[in-house]
Computed example of a mutant assay.
Amino acid sequence: MAIISTAHIPAFELLFNHATQGILLADGAGLIKAANPCFLEWSGHTPEKVLNKPTDSLLAGISGHRCVAKMGRSSP
């Protein structure tokens, strides 16, 4: 049920797919490129619902989401 479209490194995939915390990987524009099984189970979203969607829309209503959603983005 994992989405891995950006990395195919065995150690990364093992950690990503078996992590006990939800993980989202987003590009510089804030679009989700991968979500691990824990995130999908925790959020109730399907892979199709999250892939290429903005992090802001999925994390709305979650405490601290603005900090999380903007991590890794460069300033305009």
Rank of each mutant, 00 (worst) to 15 (best):
G22L: 01
T46W: 01
P54S: 07
H8M: 09
C38N: 10
L15T: 12
K33V: 11
H8R: 04
G30H: 09
L58Y: 04
C67F: 11
P37D: 04
P10L: 09
K33P: 03
E13A: 13
G64H: 00
K70V: 02
Q21K: 09
L58T: 04
L51P: 07
I62R: 14
C38G: 04
L14Q: 13
S75H: 10
M1I: 03
K53A: 15
K53G: 02
A19L: 14
W42D: 08
R73H: 15
S63M: 12
S43P: 00
P47W: 04
T6L: 15
G64I: 08
P76F: 02
R66K: 13
T20S: 14
F12C: 06
G72N: 13
A60S: 10
A26C: 13
P47E: 08
A7Y: 15
G44D: 06
L59C: 12
H8S: 15
L24V: 12
C38Y: 12
I3Q: 02
A60R: 05
V68T: 07
G44Q: 06
G22F: 00
P37I: 12
S63L: 13
L58M: 06
Q21M: 13
A69Q: 02
L51K: 01
D27F: 08
K53L: 09
G22P: 00
T46N: 03
E13F: 07
A34N: 15
D27I: 07
M71F: 12
N36G: 07
F12K: 03
L31T: 11
S63A: 13
I32V: 15
A34W: 08
T55Y: 01
P47Q: 05
G64Q: 07
L51G: 04
E13G: 07
A34H: 09
I4P: 05
S63R: 11
S43H: 02
P54F: 09
